[in-house]
Every structure is written in structure tokens, then in C-alpha cells.
Design a protein around this nucleic acid. Structure first.
Lengths: 234, 234
DNA sequence: CCTACCGATCGGTAGG
DNA sequence: CCTACCGATCGGTAGG
């Protein structure tokens, strides 16, 4: 949709232009907030990086809190597009579950959000600051946990995973491995941490898969670059 | 040692007094930094909470960075006293390993550091800000990971854990469960997360323990309040 | 340990 | 979208 050639009224056009400007602002805002945190995302810094005046930029948002909330939702849209959607292209069951976990790790590993996982950082920054920002972050991370858990339940319903597995427990463990890998990578630049997280997750998929589910695992593992992931002596 | 009645020279006494003041400052500093982060620990706020002038307080530290480093070391001393030392009172092997993990979780669960794990929060705050502060935090967390890993190796040396277990991998997983429980508790106030982390850790201790190690597990589990931790349907 | 002060930056506003 | 400005707070200093 080429907004330059649209034939809408000037009101609509100027709204569209405002929307594009807002979009451009939020792209930069997500970058800054990923690296410096949502408080480090100051209006002055954001304005200078966009070569705008502070007040010109500020006119797009009613308050700093509004800017933070808009930035969070932009990051959520980015995450859905790059992690959730590709996973939903896979069949329900172990394949989709794995794609969710693997996509999360790849998203961080490839530095697509510069400061590590935007939400892991934001959660830790705001977990002791009550307010709308904290609530929104918490709700979005709960969406993610719910998505993981649903994929686990679907794996059981598809007969690919042992029905005795407790979905919230397994979702907690998978989420923990993601947080652990992110932590290790951010603090030490340790890329091995992603392999460790994948190893831990695959080990669990192996142990909990049914005979029918186990048939899917070789194709899942074939997509991981040839590390001797599952080849512990024993 | 009652410093009020000491008979040392006035120089020594005033040094001792300065030391006590510094200690008192750092206690408050750890509290503030736990809740608000190491950048949120501002000199003005710290001074007003101690009913001191900013410059009076500042005289104890050469710069904000020095204050942050001193606060980090105070938090480290606190952690060693409350988590590491009690664990070292246990015998080498599974018992000590478990005490390290359990102590970490209890330390957060009991709110002993108000803002969740001081170091988990500090790591995420500084992981993209190069400098002495970041380096110190990274070094301390590496100490912790090393302590965990050593306890795993000792469990193998004591014949209580399968020697095929990869110590760095298991240390990564245990550390991840701790980060995951801390995350869930800080963001949702979810106390169940500690039970989930313990469940995940105990499951691994069970699976990796030798016959000799397995004899120790019942006494370990007896100390956990009677949750049906290991009683998944099967 | 204090008062008094500095330049820089913060979020936000007035007025156009 | 701009210039010009506000009070508050930041880390830090001078001088005692």
C-alpha cells in the first residue's frame, strides 16, 4: 500500500502520515529500549536520534508512560511476527512446540532484538515498579507462557507426548532454559548457552515423547546445525 | 567488639567510625539497589534515607561507580553468608549441591533481598553497559556458577552421581531454574514457581543419582514442606 | 561531616 | 511539527 499515491482526504492522509511517523519513532524506540531499558529510553535521546525536537516527538504520545506502552506493543508485534507466526506454520504437536522454543532462542541468538530479549529485560526492570507498564509486560509474558503451554497440551492431544506430563511444569522449565540462555549470552556473550538450552529441551522432548511422537524427533534434530547435541556417553 | 569503649588511637577510632558509617550506608544501598536497580540507587535518595547530606555521604565514595561497586560487594558478602556458608556446612556431594540450590531459592522466596535476587536484577540492568560494574557482576555470577559446578563434580567424585553427567550442562540447567523461579516470583508474585524449580531440580537429582546417592534423597526431600513433589502419575 | 553551588538532563508545557 | 521555557533531579565540586 503506497501511501504517497493514496487519494484519501487530507485529514486521512495526514493521519496516515502521523501513523508512519509514529511507526518510525517506535522502531527506534524498541531498539533503544532493548539496549538501555525502558527508563533509559528518554524522550531527549529518542528525539535526537530521529533528528526531531523533543516536543515534536512528544506530541505523538501523551506522556512517557504512553511512549513506553506503545514501545512495548511494538516489541510484541515484532516478537509475534518473528517467533510466534513461523511456529504456527508448523503442525500442532511436537514440531510446533519445538519451533516455538527454537525460534525464541534463535531470535535472541541472531541479535534481532539488540539488547537480548526485550521482554526479559523489561520484566526485570519493572518487576518492582507497579503501574500500567509493569502490568502490560506481565500480561505479554503470560501470553507467551500460555502459548508454550498450549503447544504442550496439543502435543499430548496429538498422542505425541506422555499425557502424564504436567503442562505448566514443562512450560516453566522451557521458559527457564530460555531465560538462562539469554542471561548467559547477554552477560558473557556465551553462544554455547543456546546449545545448552536446546540440549535441555530436546532431552525432555525425548523423555516425554510417545512412540508416535518419537518418530518426529529426528527431523527436528536434523535442523540443528551438526552439534553432537544428543550424544552423551551412556 | 564494642567500638564505643575501644582504647585505640583517635585516628584508628575515627577510621573505625568511618567504617561503621560506611557499613550502615551500604546496608541501605543494597536495599535500594535491590528494589530500584543500581542506577536507581541515586546519591540523593540514599542520603535522604540516611538523613545525611549528599556531599557528606559522597565523601565515603569517590564516584557513583565506586558506590555501585561497594554495594555489589556488600550484596556478595550477604549472599555468601546466607546461602554459600550454610551449604558448605553440609557434606560434599548431593546434600551440599541440594543445599546450594535450595538455599538460593529460599533466599529469594523469603524476600531476604527485597527486590528479588540482587545479582539477577543487576546482571540484566548492566549486561549492555560495559564497565567495571558489569565486569564485577559477571565475575560474581561466575563464582556462583563455579560453586554449583564444583558441587556437581564433588557429587560424582563421591560416587553419588552418574559420572556421565556433564557438570557445566547441569549447572546451566539448575541456574536456569533459579532464574525462572525468580522471574515468576518477581513478576507475578507466584510462590508456586519455587516448588516448580525444586521439582525440576529433584527430578534431575533422582535421574542422575547412583544407587549410593539415591539413599540420600529421602532425607533431602523430607526437609521440603509436604508437597507432593515427586508424585506425578505415571 | 556540612552548606552552597555547578552544568547537564530529565519529563513536561505554553504558544504558535 | 517548532522554539523557548519550567521545576526537579542527576553526579559532582568548592570550601570549610
Amino acid at each position: 500500500m503506497d501511501v504517497e499515491h493514496e487519494t484519501k482526504s487530507s485529514t486521512t492522509r495526514s493521519k496516515a502520515k502521523g501513523g508512519r511517523t509514529r511507526q518510525a519513532i517506535l522502531e527506534v524506540a524498541v531498539d533503544i529500549a532493548s539496549a538501555e531499558g525502558l527508563e533509559g529510553l528518554t524522550i531527549g535521546r529518542l528525539a535526537s536520534q530521529l533528528s526531531m525536537s523533543k516536543s515534536g516527538l512528544f506530541a505523538h504520545f501523551g506522556s512517557k508512560e504512553d511512549l513506553q506502552l506503545a514501545t512495548i506493543d511494538a516489541a510484541r508485534a515484532h516478537f509475534i511476527h518473528h517467533v510466534i507466526q513461523p511456529a504456527l506454520d508448523n503442525e500442532r504437536g511436537l514440531q510446533r512446540l519445538w519451533k516455538l522454543c527454537d525460534g525464541w532462542l534463535s531470535h535472541v541468538q541472531d541479535g534481532e532484538c539488540s539488547g537480548g530479549c526485550f521482554f526479559a529485560a523489561a520484566a526485570s526492570e519493572f518487576d518492582s515498579r507497579p503501574g500500567l507498564v509493569r502490568d502490560r509486560i506481565a500480561a505479554i509474558m503470560l501470553e507467551w507462557l500460555g502459548t508454550l503451554q498450549r503447544a504442550i497440551v496439543e502435543s499430548q492431544e496429538a498422542g505425541q507426548m506422555d499425557p502424564a506430563v504436567d503442562p505448566p511444569q514443562l512450560a516453566f522449565e522451557f521458559n527457564s532454559f530460555e531465560l538462562g540462555a539469554n542471561w548467559s549470552f547477554q552477560l558473557y556473550g556465551d553462544k554455547k548457552a543456546f546449545a545448552r538450552a536446546r540440549e535441555a529441551m530436546l532431552e525432555r522432548l525425548h523423555r516425554y515423547s510417545t512412540r508416535s511422537g518419537a518418530r518426529l524427533l529426528p527431523s527436528i534434530e536434523a535442523n540443528i546445525e551438526a552439534k553432537p547435541v544428543r550424544s552423551r556417553r551412556k
